[in-house]
């Protein structure tokens, strides 16, 4: 069984989300096989969950000042600051043998790719429902799934490094009074490959490890490819008409 493997390097957030959606469309229409995509972010981007309020979660002035884009996802879950990170997306039909009907089961099956990728770097990860992967009890990966047009799209992050203070300069917290404590809590609860391995892991090394991890966990062969010209064009169009617009980003204030 073969999945297509796309390594698309680093891109702006609106394009990253647009290309994930374009791949979903191509797989849904049978124009492309199930696909694993690995990518990064430039400029750094805050993504918001589908059900989150923009003004509630993000300090847009701080983002503008620090050159950080803000983009809303089609998936639920929380706000994420994407910087030193490997991101993956995986798209497969709901009817595919590797797909699971239940959402929680699907998270478990697909997050096994993250756990296996960590193993290839010498780390022992564990899936923590609903949607996290932990190393040593600390979160190293967050994941989010949606189902559209008969397909599953799951995307998720693997932290190569993390700067919690910088993250909280961009995000709003429910109570300014509690901010200090919250930051300390998050520092305790979140980790990264660099923290765990005591050395930096670059995007190429991480991409190789997690491609192998997904291939092993899903028992599939990965066929390296490029996004089709149609997918790239569609991804750019969706970025322009949806993810790059205030109407979409601010649809929940």
């Amino acid at each position: 069984m073969t999945f297509r493997l796309l390594e698309t390097g680093v891109s702006p957030g609106a394009f990253n989300m647009g290309l994930d959606e374009a791949i979903l469309g191509a797989v849904a229409e049978g124009r492309q096989p199930p696909t694993l995509r690995l990518y990064g972010w430039n400029p750094p981007t805050v993504t918001l969950g589908y059900f989150q309020g923009l003004d509630e979660e993000v300090d847009r002035e701080a983002c503008a000042r620090m050159g950080v884009d803000v983009v809303r996802r089609i998936t639920g879950g929380g706000a994420v600051f994407h910087d030193a990170e490997l991101t993956y997306s995986i798209v497969l039909p709901e009817s595919h043998p590797r797909a699971r009907p239940g959402i929680l089961d699907s998270y478990r099956v697909l997050c096994a790719g993250v756990v296996e990728g960590l193993a290839r770097l010498g780390l022992s990860g564990e899936f923590a429902p609903i949607n996290d992967v932990l190393v040593g009890g600390r979160k190293v990966s967050g994941n989010a799934q949606t189902r559209k047009r008969g397909c599953i799209l799951q995307h998720g992050t693997i932290l190569l490094d993390v700067d919690v203070d910088r993250m909280f300069a961009l995000l709003k917290v429910p109570s300014e009074k509690m901010k200090g404590k919250l930051i300390e809590d998050v520092k305790q609860r979140v980790t990264s490959l660099r923290h765990q391995l005591g050395r930096s892991v670059g995007l190429p090394e991480a991409a190789a490890a997690f491609a192998a991890g997904f291939a092993a966990a899903l028992d599939v062969v990965l066929d390296p490819a490029q996004p089709s010209p149609e997918e790239l064009e569609e991804g750019r169009r969706i970025a322009r008409e949806k993810y790059g617009t205030e109407a979409w980003t601010g649809r929940r204030k």
């Binding site: 589908y50 059900f51 998936t75 639920g76 879950g77 929380g78 989010a144 559209k148 929940r252």
Partner: peptide, 15 residues
């Protein structure tokens, strides 16, 4: 009413 947060709902548009 605005029900916001970092939860998941499937399908999202139904929510």
């Amino acid at each position: 009413v605005a029900v916001r947060g970092d939860f998941f709902a499937h399908p999202e548009e139904g929510f």
